[in-house]
Design a protein around this nucleic acid. Structure first.
Lengths: 237, 237
DNA sequence: GAGTGGTCTAGACCACTGT
DNA sequence: CAGTGGTCTAGACCACTCT
């Protein structure tokens, strides 16, 4: 293990404060001159770390005012998968959701393949249906690692859907998305009000905080109706 | 229009040389001290640009040796969609492809919605089938803007599939991916040897060089068999 | 061994913006 | 107007690696 450079250490420290929730969105982080004093280095070195955080949109910088933690980092995901509520409301339709099933259990060996990085700890298993107006929009099957997010056990998920709740409560440092097309099974088809066997878009998302699994979720969108968009240009400025 | 910073200009210049193909993969770009002389600035300023290009994986830096243009930039796409040949061979199956249809025509008004940024110029329309061993792997329906890539007209696409050919020949600066699940239509289902109406994963990709459309392609993967993976962590180091 | 990139310094000037 | 970030300089030392 070679020593990481100083600006990398500063970056990691600040990222840690943000992702742990210790510095919530809107929080003003120390000024460059304060950090350069704290780390006993030149302002350039601090600036290198902060510039990178700003490019990653974890912080926002304003002259004379300082640097501030931005809103939840999820929107900067590779695939810009917005919150489902936002997604539905963007269509101009009223949004609601309901919990269809809820179960607490211990993680088995089957879970560790789905939720790599989970121990043998307690899990919360949820099925949740999202509506856009009068039609089911999307089905959410989720596992939450109660070791990462113990408060989830007491949360009724009435006001806030599990996804949004976790976003605000259990910050993550890494995510993986898998996207597939598959025939929708019998039970999910019933829940979605479609014909079993018709095509669905399946999005699996896994998130981790460090090496510890936070959540695993499968979102099932009825086919045709949904598409994912990703735009890209190299070395974005 | 405020003046862009010097390191941004240096970055843009070098990126331009790379994306235009003028500096092909493997090409050694000027040393830091040469660039600092050319732009009449300090090495730090040059270093800032080059460090950023290295993070974007457009160049690779080796001490004592210099900095080199990396292999085609497509692999750094948001969704890491590999070349289909690579994808099939990664499965340990023999790869081949065939052109099913080929047509040259003028762009109509219908095309401009599919290929935003195309003029009224000539288009090449291709349908191509990719095989993994004895089974069809993927269907490729492609439009190529012959204004962007005039040499495509004379290319038989026997040795090299259109996708790989374009990658090497017509560099792009922006890309958009759309991913959907949909029932596979009758003709494509025949081509893929599956039952019409079964689920398929559709990947639409559009690429541009500057403001000019390069190509529009729809890849149809028979359902179940395919998945896309995207990994992400904030402020990647 | 020599030349490259990686990192860092201790300044500097400027633009912007909040007060 | 004062204080912040944005940018840049002209050095420096070190680690690595190619020859």
């Amino acid at each position: 293990m070679t020593a990481p450079s100083l600006h990398a250490r500063i970056l990691a420290d600040i990222e840690g404060h943000i992702l742990s929730g210790e510095w919530p969105p809107g929080h003003r982080i120390p000024f460059e001159h304060e950090l350069s004093a704290k780390y006993a280095c030149s302002r350039m070195t601090v600036n290198k770390a902060l510039t990178q955080l700003a490019k990653a949109k974890l912080i926002e910088r304003r002259r004379k005012a300082g640097s501030f933690v931005t809103r939840p980092p999820s929107r900067s995901a590779v695939l810009d998968i917005p919150d489902i509520k936002t997604e539905v409301e963007a269509l101009g339709l009223p949004y609601r959701f309901e919990i269809l099933s809820r179960r607490k259990r211990r993680a088995g060996r089957d879970d560790s393949t789905r939720l790599e990085g989970v121990g043998a700890g307690p899990l919360l298993e949820l099925v949740c249906r999202h509506w856009a107006g009068a039609r089911p929009f999307c089905l959410e099957e989720r596992l939450i690692n109660l070791v990462s997010a113990p408060e989830a056990e007491a949360e009724p998920f009435i006001e806030v859907a599990p996804g949004a709740w976790l976003l605000a409560r259990a910050p993550w440092t890494a995510a993986e998305h898998r996207i597939r097309a598959r025939a929708v099974g019998k039970r999910p088809a019933e829940w979605l009000g479609i014909v079993a066997g018709s095509p669905g878009l399946f999005i699996e998302r896994r998130t981790w905080a460090g090496d510890v699994a936070v959540t695993f979720v499968v979102l099932t969108y009825p086919g045709e109706g949904h598409e994912l968009v990703a735009r890209f240009s190299p070395s974005q400025r």
